[in-house]
Design a binder for these strands. Structure first.
Lengths: 209, 209
DNA sequence: ACCTAAGTGGAGAGTGTCCTCCACATGTAT
DNA sequence: ATACATGTGGAGGACACTCTCCACTTAGGT
């Protein structure tokens, strides 16, 4: 039941299927979800037809490629809940989620996309969501997270971090600022030094891309 | 000398040129800088050849379309410098810049792109940059902006805001959090209510796009 | 009114990606 | 060993976008 309703492929076909998802993870991470599927097939060492047979739409492939990624996401939330210090768990979690996004361009895009047909993936998404709601609640009860914070603010943060992902150190600095704003005043050392700012001259001067 | 080195077009050609830049502003604002140039030409009511004759590369067109936008940007900075309260000027400025970006998808993209050949545009960019450096300095001297703030943080903010621009109220909330983090603790009413959070359920649930 | 340099639009070549079809290959059950 | 369902790759049609060429049109000076 690890892969519920898939009709049992021939051994070589199953092998190819996995090669394709592995290649997709690689290519999506580097080039985003819009990468040409022909490139993915080439990377996997199979013909395009094989890719399309297994994954009729791009969404199918993305969902298959990021089932694990979403699970890792939910696991990170679960791990944060295990921290006896809920505020520290909250801060560490946001750091980890941002780091995961920064390391995988496709993941950042996949997180803001719904996959109606991908049950396993959506189940992990729900698990992450509910864990996060609980974590937010605990951090508020502990008096460390401001009362008007809402779990949706995490979405905002992740989308914002995705926007600056190009410049590696930038998201750390953004996160540091935001964590300070999320904290209840006076409960956190406000004097902690900020992470290194982005490279001089980047401002309004073009990041080329 | 408003348009220094352009070789004087025939009246109808000049008219068409302006129709094209106007159409480009419209299309870029709505669909981003990647919009098909055929669509821009159709919107302008001219053939593609006319567009390409005046603007050999996409960059040329983008630069022409956003010369005004960049000027508006620099003007906003200048206006902020006129505010006797530098901190209020700073806050209002960030609000305005974010609002401009949110209203014009192309502008947000153009700001993070260099246009080596577009002198007028780059001049405005410089004007904005230098004004901003001055404003940041004043707000620090006034004791309202934290000392470890750097002008490049504005870039980070703008890139972050661009990342959440899809959900209209989200950038306001992000900005509110960040302004609180930028302020020197104790100098600003930390109890001001946050702007309305983004719609419930957006979290990790897909913004479709 | 006429002439010509300047300007125009649409057709079409070039390119890249999506997706399907089908002749051929290969696992697997007997 | 044989047979056949299952699986494969590459060729190629469809489409979208970029950019150029050229026969025709028009502004504006004489």
């Amino acid at each position: 039941m690890s892969t519920p309703a898939r009709p049992a492929l021939r051994a070589d076909a199953e092998r190819n299927r996995e090669r394709v998802t592995a290649a997709a993870r690689l290519m999506f991470a580097e080039h985003g979800l819009g990468v040409p599927l022909e490139d993915v097939a080439r990377q996997a060492g199979v013909g395009v037809a094989t890719l399309y047979r297994r994954f009729p739409t791009r969404e199918d492939l993305v969902a298959a490629a990021y089932e694990d990624g979403m699970t890792a996401y939910a696991d990170a939330v679960a791990a944060a809940l295990d921290d006896p210090d809920s505020w520290r768990g909250f801060c560490d979690l946001l750091e980890r989620l941002c780091a995961m996004q920064a390391a995988d361009r496709g993941l950042a895009e996949a997180l803001t996309t719904a996959f109606p047909g991908a049950r396993a993936l959506e189940a992990q998404r729900d698990r992450a969501y509910h864990g996060l709601v609980e974590l937010v609640s605990r951090a508020k009860v502990a008096g460390r997270l401001r009362r008007d914070f809402v779990p949706e603010d995490v979405t905002v943060l992740l989308a914002a971090a995705a926007g600056v992902a190009s410049a590696p150190p930038a998201w750390r600095r953004l996160l540091a600022y935001l964590l300070q704003a999320f904290a209840v005043p006076g409960t956190t050392p406000e004097t902690a030094p900020l992470p290194e700012p982005p490279a001089r001259g980047a401002l309004l001067r073009g990041m080329t891309r």
